[in-house]
Design a protein around this nucleic acid. Structure first.
Length: 445
DNA sequence: TCTGGGGTCCTTTTCCTT
DNA sequence: TCTGAAGGAAAAGGACCC
């Protein structure tokens, strides 16, 4: 954490302020799609829907004979790999207007033009179709988003190596010891990162820099898109306290409703409550956390690499299935989910010993069951057997809309550990040439 | 009315052992 | 064998996030 004593260009440790950045890509999925289909700019576009949508598009394509020589084999069950390859060849015109779409699904994201009609993330596609029937519906292409994700993260670690991965479109970065990371409170380094990412990918992002992750996360939202916001401890009362409690990462709809029931709407109002009352009302852990968060305190470190705790696969059916009447169908899906989880584990070099299932009924209520077996496994048959045991402990009168399989209590396989020790350290080394370029970045923007 | 998929973390409940 | 307390692990549920 502290700068090395012998280094000539590091200021004395006492002068270094903790500077944590939160970087958030602007409208990530939609921006990636617009790179692929620039003609969609300014049109209402909705991204969402799943396999049904791609299958519809492929069917339409075949019907119109627009497909290339080797259309995806229509008879195979859903094969994500093949379908995605086919997806690349689908001309835009083949994708349905939202109004033509039939099937389940939610909107993952929508372009600004579509949002003007009132559609937005997490809305059901059927409802969105009523609000904006002319919107173009693109299927989600996670493979492609992950490709861009890897690219922009590689750029960041070249410049500032202490990066915490927080999912496909955001990261935390520790600026504290990066040369230049203290200049203008972090603004200079943030600008360099924004510029480098834009030049390499064509994508824009927003950055917040603050003394800790909690405040940095809030700051990155201040000037979206393409924004930079710098927050210091002294800004707490003016910049943070007027915000709604919901802006704190970790306060969701439930906690917010409970706070509101006590008349607490803003972070400032939350900060007025004393610790004892919060602990008594929200419990030990949550109470203490709420108190600290409202005062802008957060000591969590930037975590460079973390081990997964569980891996799972789940699927929502096209229509609700009945345990008895659709037994064959359900059983096939169940087995496939187990095989997929097993493959995921094997591919990533993990084994687990807690195997669980998740069911969602037609009334949207969910139940889970799990079972810890006496050895670690990544074997599909073993997982299927244990998951089958779990299934016996669950009521099956109602129709099911979702089925999932999860493996937890993970550990790395011996082979994967070996690979780690042989190749792990190199990528974390600081590339000093990249860092020294920071000295010349003042006039970049 | 409709509500995906893949995760993490926390709390409460249940079960087992001493 | 029962009864009760206590503690820990496993199981279940739920909130939250991207």
């Amino acid at each position: 954490m502290n700068s090395e004593p012998g280094k000539p260009d590091s200021p004395p440790a006492a002068l270094l302020l903790r500077r944590i950045a939160h970087l958030d890509m602007d409208a990530f999925y939609a921006s990636v799609e617009l790179l692929r289909y620039p003609q969609l700019k300014d049109l209402p576009v909705v991204i969402g829907g799943g396999r049904q949508h791609i299958q519809n598009a492929l069917a339409a394509l075949r019907a119109a004979d627009l497909a290339n020589a080797d259309p995806a084999e229509p008879e195979t069950p859903w094969d994500a790999q093949a379908q995605r390859a086919a997806l690349r060849r689908i001309p835009l015109e083949a994708f349905a207007r939202l109004s033509e779409y039939t099937g389940r699904g939610v909107i993952t994201t929508a372009t600004y033009a579509a949002r003007q009609f009132g559609v937005g993330s997490a809305m059901g596609l059927m409802k969105a179709a009523k609000l904006c029937p002319q919107a173009i519906l693109l299927p989600v292409d996670f493979e492609e988003y992950r490709r861009f994700s890897r690219q922009f993260k590689a750029i960041i670690t070249e410049i500032a190596p202490l990066m915490e991965d927080r999912g496909v479109d955001e990261v935390y970065i520790d600026f504290t010891d990066v040369p230049g990371g203290q200049r203008e409170g972090g603004r200079v380094l943030a600008r360099l990162i924004q510029k480098t990412i834009f030049e390499a990918t064509g994508l824009t992002c927003s950055v917040g820099v603050a003394p800790n992750k909690l405040l940095a996360k809030m700051a990155s939202e201040f000037n979206k898109p393409k924004g930079i916001a710098i927050v210091h401890e002294r800004d707490l009362e003016t910049l943070i306290w007027p915000l709604a409690c919901r802006k704190i990462n970790g306060i969701g709809p439930k906690a917010d409703a409970k706070l509101k029931s006590f008349g607490i709407e803003t972070i400032g109002q939350l900060a007025q409550r004393d610790l004892a009352w919060l602990v008594q009302t929200f419990g030990n852990k949550t109470g203490a956390w709420l108190h600290a968060a409202s005062h802008g305190r957060d000591e969590r470190p930037v975590v460079l690499d973390s081990e997964p705790v569980s891996m799972s696969r789940e699927t929502t059916f096209e229509r609700d299935l009945h345990a008895v009447r659709d037994k064959a169908n359900l059983s096939a899906v169940f087995t496939r989910l187990c095989e997929q989880v097993a493959l995921d584990l094997q591919r990533k070099g993990y084994q687990g010993k807690t195997i669980g299932i998740k069911l969602r009924y037609d009334d949207f209520k969910s139940v889970t069951r799990d079972l810890t077996i006496d050895h670690f496994t990544a074997d599909a048959k073993t997982i299927r057997h244990a998951a089958g045991q779990c299934l016996k402990r669950v009521p099956l009168e109602r129709r099911l809309r979702l089925l999932g399989v999860r493996v937890g209590a993970l550990r790395k396989t011996a082979e994967a550990q070996l690979l780690d020790t042989n190749s792990g350290v190199a990528h974390k080394k600081i590339d000093s040439s990249a860092i020294h370029s920071i000295a010349f970045t003042d006039q970049l923007f």
